[in-house]
């Protein structure tokens, strides 16, 4: 089913603050098989000049998709069973580390058809609770067969 184009420009409410923890970073690093000590050991991270353990580059995927609430809106018409990931990009304004409290606001920036598929792009602006810009993420998902 074609996605509802009226959703382009729609933004989520700010997410509840997400508290980045050492335990979650360690779990994520283990899941991607990365043994870098700066993800696991505060002293190693501090020796490398970071205030605490830092997050791997793709870690923001864990919390940035507060846009999920938009994507789950039945009015959008997205069939999750047919969804695969199309594109992903992260712009980092500074590294994320344990202790950060982050808020995401997600905005649908584009919906388009490519062949038989529907593509929807969501930008998430991630800041600290104090408003410091931390990263911007761009997530394009593909609904297979959605345009047919």
């Amino acid at each position: 089913m074609a996605l509802n184009r009226d959703f382009v420009g729609r933004a989520s409410a700010p997410s509840p603050p997400y508290e980045v923890s050492r335990v979650k970073i360690k779990e994520f690093a283990a899941a991607i098989g990365d043994n870098n000590p700066v993800y696991r050991d505060r002293e190693a991270a501090q020796a490398a000049g970071h205030p605490d353990v830092i997050a791997p580059p793709t870690f923001p995927i864990v919390f940035s998709l507060s846009g999920g609430s938009i994507l789950a809106d039945p009015e959008l018409g997205l069939n999750f069973a047919m969804v695969v990931h199309g594109e992903q990009r992260f712009e980092y304004h500074r590294p994320i580390h344990a202790g950060d409290e982050l808020v995401s606001v997600s905005t649908v920036t584009d919906i388009r058809s490519v062949g038989r598929n529907e593509l929807i792009t969501v930008r998430s602006d991630v800041t600290t609770v104090d408003g410091e810009s931390v990263c911007t993420t761009y997530n394009t998902i593909v609904e297979r067969g959605g345009a047919s």
Partner: peptide, 28 residues
């Protein structure tokens, strides 16, 4: 994102500091 994480690992292992990555994007 698992594949993107592996390519990210390749990148940070080369750079020597995950904090040195300022922009990273892929198409699947």
């Amino acid at each position: 994102m698992y594949t993107m994480a592996q390519a990210g690992r390749f990148l940070t292992d080369w750079a020597g500091d995950p904090g040195a990555v300022v922009d990273y994007g892929v198409r699947f």
